[in-house]
Amino acid sequence: MQKIKPLDHLVLILGVLFLCVPVVMALMSSTHYPVDIHSNGLFLTPGDNGLATYTKVLTDRGGFTGDVTGLRMLMNSLIMGVGFAVGKIVLSMMAAYALVYFRFRFATILFWMIFTTLLLPLEVRIMPSYQVMSTLGLLNTYTGLIVPLLASATGTFFFRQFFKSVPDELLEAARIDGAGPWKFFIDVLVPLSKTMMAAIFIIMFIYGWNQYLWPLLMTTDEHFYTLMRGIKSILQVWVGSQIPDYNEAFALAVLAMLPPVAVVVIFQRMFIKGLTESDK
């Protein structure tokens, strides 16, 4: 086989350093005092202010109404991530099932109606989307945060591909046994898709958790702020204060990145599967 060259390891180590040192520095700096950070720069070693900082960020009531805590934002982010992932799986599995397993009028036109959504990301239609949401009275609601993001066919596309690969014999056998469409869906397809659902869940959870622009527009009420939205407001507070609370900003960043990173590291295999097979 090939020889191991130290150069290969060097390149990899440099790559790892480039990607991971900022994360480590953010984590370590969040445990120091803002004054120390201001005068000494960022840290690569832990400090002794960590507990206080995180307690403050998580439980201190801040914002304009003085009512929103980090814990609340964490919960909102969780609702957003889980709600989005679950909604996506339910909607897209059902739609894909109808498109693959049924012979019905307009099926092709429906297929194209749904898949055109892949053409335009939310960012290019933010302004009118905002207007639609305000017409519907969905600003500052969880529905308004989650449901509009479901209007894309990524999941449907993925489940359609998967259903197409399920052997036809299964349906034939189920029909001989007298199973109708509902029974076949619940008793055969859903259990069969478990791994796929888990993979999609991971991808979509991260996607939902990491949403920035949409929560920024949709929420003016601080009770609905997610961590990403909190980052925006912590930056707005910065303008004008003498020594910014660097440690708190870093702590907020750490809180915002920890759950998705943990999910990726723990479910790495499933995550890669979901990512490379769903393609988007």
């Binding site: 059902m94 739609a95 109606m113 239609r125 449901v147 479901l150 449907t156």
Partner: peptide, 17 residues
């Protein structure tokens, strides 16, 4: 039946896309 399955996705796509 297929309409029942595809309707939720269709509604979301129509209203929000």
């Amino acid at each position: 039946t297929p309409w029942l399955f595809v309707l939720p996705q269709l509604a979301v796509v129509a209203i929000f896309f």
